[in-house]
């Protein structure tokens, strides 16, 4: 464990609490892509199958359980509790375009051709692009509540912090995980446009609005 990774994980945790807070306080999931949230459930379920056979640490175990449970809970809130506040006509990204290629990539690029490894690689690729439906929705509506942008920023920061973590690990432990690194860089890259607007507008106290 190093500081970058710890802060990254904390940013990830923060993003989930921000999202829960947004849904609970506004009693609405307006502006949140159900598809992206559903993809995260799939990401966690396929990545953490090793919960059953690979013990890492208590920290790792608790976090995995939390990510699975909280993502399922968010899906429940969106699907049942606050269903009327979700507008499927804005959430129109076709996730088949993400699932198919990620699955094919996982079949080709994995560390070992066995079920758990292919699922793991699939989860890495899918996580990298799971934010697409959300960003697409943002693009369509052209604006977002501040709290929704804080959620996205925390999620982006989480991924961005994993990059110095990998650099640090390369120099201190000599380990590189090329699949995670390449996917992680792609994933972070997807947030660049968002970050630009977030830092130049939201953090200056302005409304998050995309240029027309």
């Amino acid at each position: 464990m190093n500081l970058f990774r710890l802060l990254g994980d904390l940013a990830h945790l923060a993003s989930i609490f921000i999202l829960l807070h947004k849904i609970q306080t506004t009693r609405s999931c307006r502006g949140i892509s159900f598809k992206t949230q559903a993809l995260y459930v799939l990401v966690f379920l396929t990545r953490y199958v090793d919960l059953f056979f690979h013990w890492v640490s208590l920290y790792n175990f608790v976090m995995k359980i939390f990510f699975i449970a909280s993502s399922c809970y968010i899906l429940y809130l969106m699907k049942y509790r606050f269903r009327p506040t979700h507008d499927p006509s804005l959430d129109t990204f076709k996730i088949e375009y993400l699932l198919g290629p990620c699955f094919v990539l996982a079949l080709i690029f994995n560390y070992h051709f066995e079920l758990a490894e292919v699922l793991w690689a699939f989860s890495i690729y899918l996580e990298a692009v799971a934010i697409f439906p959300q960003l697409f929705m943002l693009q369509r509506t052209g604006e977002a509540e501040a709290i929704t942008t804080h959620y996205l920023a925390a999620l982006g920061v989480y991924r961005a912090l994993y990059i110095p973590n990998w650099i640090y690990r390369y120099f201190t432990e000599g380990v590189v995980d090329p699949i995670a690194v390449v996917a992680g860089i792609v994933q972070t890259g997807l947030y660049l446009d968002f970050f630009y607007v977030y830092f130049t507008k939201v953090l200056q106290g302005q409304k998050f609005e995309l240029p027309a």
């Binding site: 990774r5 690979h54 890492v56 976090m63 560390y111 793991w120 590189v176």
Partner: peptide, 10 residues
């Protein structure tokens, strides 16, 4: 030698 990366990250 193809050693699998240790999967200790989340």
């Amino acid at each position: 030698p193809s050693e699998l990366p240790v999967k200790d990250e989340l």
